[in-house]
Nucleic acid binder design. Structure first.
Length: 482
RNA sequence: GGCCCCUUCGUCUAAUCGGUUAGGACACCAGCCUUUCAAGCUGGCAACAGGGGUUCGAAUCCCCUAGGGGUCACCA
């Protein structure tokens, strides 16, 4: 075994969106390609905003995407004692200290710094308090925070797997808080303590954490642990290049599911956002297993990517067309149900019928939701005739007569199948001295209400003789009445 | 504003250590196929942010500028 251990550590303050999902995916690909383990950890120390239903949704989303983890979920809220213990150790070693400064004083300092156009750095007011002073603060009922004692000089170097060496001047890093006055750890502390204690070898996360990394390294050093390797993957941006957020372009995995995207397509698309197999490789369609084989952190881009729904749509359509028909039908059922087209459980006959519909309709749609929409007329005739279609195909002379003629002949047709119907249309049009299109177009409009769709004779076969004839007569009637 | 990261077609990206007509995919346009719409096939349009260096030669190395993003919380 490689000994590689990575983690995906979301905070349950919202639904998993494409950015987080891609981070999970890269961790998964890295772990699998190295023969290592993936740990799922829930960073839920932000009590006010963490919600348990988000945790469930998150797990559902990860499973749906097919990203199985090996350990966890672990919860930071169950590990509070560890953070306290590690912080006490630092206190005992004089590598951290209690700070009694009030929020107001800190806020004043910050606004002052802002006015002077410089970054605020905690001035170290409480660095060297003596016992008496601390005792006095305690008596006054002030709950202290714990701050890490950080070096004032020198450089903290982050070795990033994707960005090489990134150095930060310690002078710009202040004594930041590791334990809040309510006793809970801050993110930077809890995160690195967990990574260290859990033996994480590679921390793969979004670039927004790069600036926090030196702080975490300082914690690790003070605590006396070896550093994990770091890799900061580029962000995914909204179409206007701004940060993706819940209310700004960030579609959640659940929404993708609800819109009828296939997990294989979404995973494939996400992988290509910031990664490509490179080296002349021009294929873009990969199964998860193929991605595992080819994944390489060195091939991850440095540039933030804007995600483009159009390409995802194309890819989803591609997957739908290639998908095993039985499987596709199974996962499509809820979408048909939602539109009241079928009711589960389906009988074998119903399932097979649905299968035939999907086989032909999937050629021209991009999502499962569209698939159901585009199939509606196979289940009922409560549709309006397309307006342009009416003026184009219903308004010519004799159309009603033609439709009635076709209906009449169809009733006698034996056998009622694609080939015979096609032959019939040919002979009728010859007989009438008109082009087949003159018959075909109004027929399609009569049967589906639309001007576009699967091959007409296929539709007629699937609809069956009875419904076909009925709809033709209905359309003829409609034309005569208007 | 300080600090950090980034910059190839509209979008996602390729081009191992400097030498390519700068390649592919989506989108778009055209043609083919065809009963329609898709799909498919063929072709087309389209990029090295700008400026300086280094070099025989730079998308590739260095510097500057500009632009974008991130981060500076008792959020994660």
């Amino acid at each position: 075994m490689s000994g590689v251990r990575v983690r995906f550590a979301p905070s349950p303050t919202g639904e998993l969106h494409i950015g987080g999902a891609r981070t999970a995916l890269f961790n998964y690909l890295f772990a699998r390609s190295a023969g290592g383990d993936l740990v799922l950890r829930i960073d839920d120390t932000y009590l006010e905003r963490s919600r348990s239903d988000y945790i469930e949704k998150l797990i559902t989303s990860l499973r749906w995407l097919g990203l199985e983890w090996d350990e966890g979920p672990y919860y930071q809220s169950n590990r509070l004692a560890e953070y306290t213990r590690e912080a006490e150790r630092l206190l005992a070693d004089n590598k951290a200290y209690r700070c009694y400064c009030s929020a107001e004083v800190l806020a004043d300092g910050r606004s002052e710094a802002r006015q002077e156009n410089r970054a605020y750095l905690y001035p170290g007011t409480c660095r060297n308090l003596n016992e008496d002073q601390e005792e006095a603060f305690r008596k006054a009922g002030i709950n202290p925070v714990i701050r890490l004692l950080t070096p004032d000089q020198g450089v903290t170097m982050v070795q990033d797997q994707i960005r090489a060496e990134v150095s930060f001047e310690n002078a710009y890093l202040d004594d930041f808080i590791i334990i809040k006055s309510n006793g809970l750890p801050t993110y930077n502390f809890a995160s690195i303590v967990d990574d260290l204690q859990m033996g994480i070898t590679d921390v793969i996360r979004a670039e927004e954490h790069l600036s926090n990394t030196p702080r975490q390294q300082l914690c690790a050093n003070a605590l006396g642990y070896d550093l994990p390797r770091f890799a900061h993957v580029p962000m995914i941006l909204a179409p206007d290049r701004s940060k993706l957020s819940k209310r700004h372009g960030a579609t959640s995995v659940e929404e993708f599911y609800a819109e009828g995207f296939l997990p294989e397509a979404l995973v494939n698309y996400m992988a290509l956002l910031g990664w490509s197999p490179g080296a002349g490789g021009e294929e873009e369609i990969f199964t998860l297993d193929e991605m595992v084989k080819r994944f390489d952190l060195n091939k991850v881009t440095k540039t933030a990517a804007i995600y483009d729904v159009t390409k995802l749509g194309w890819m989803n359509g591609h997957y739908m067309r290639e998908y095993d028909l039985d499987k596709l039908t199974e996962i499509a059922v809820p979408f048909f149900e939602q539109k009241d087209l079928v009711k589960s459980p389906l009988t074998e006959n119903d399932f097979n019928y649905l299968k035939q519909i999907i086989a032909t309709v999937r050629e021209r749609v991009k999502t499962l939701a569209e698939l159901a929409d585009a199939s509606a007329y196979f289940y009922h005739d409560r549709f309006e005739y397309d307006e342009k279609g009416i003026s184009k195909h219903f308004s010519k002379d004799n159309t009603a007569d033609y439709l009635l003629r076709v209906a009449e002949e169809l009733q006698k047709l034996e056998p009622y199948d694609k080939e015979s119907i096609e032959a019939l249309y040919k002979s009728i049009s010859e007989n009438l001295g008109v082009s087949t299109g003159r018959l075909i177009h109004p027929t399609r409009l009569a049967l589906t209400g639309r001007t576009a769709g699967p091959g007409l004779f296929e539709i007629m076969t699937l609809l069956g003789r009875e419904r076909t004839v009925e709809r033709l007569k209905k359309a003829a009637q409609y034309i005569l009445n208007n």
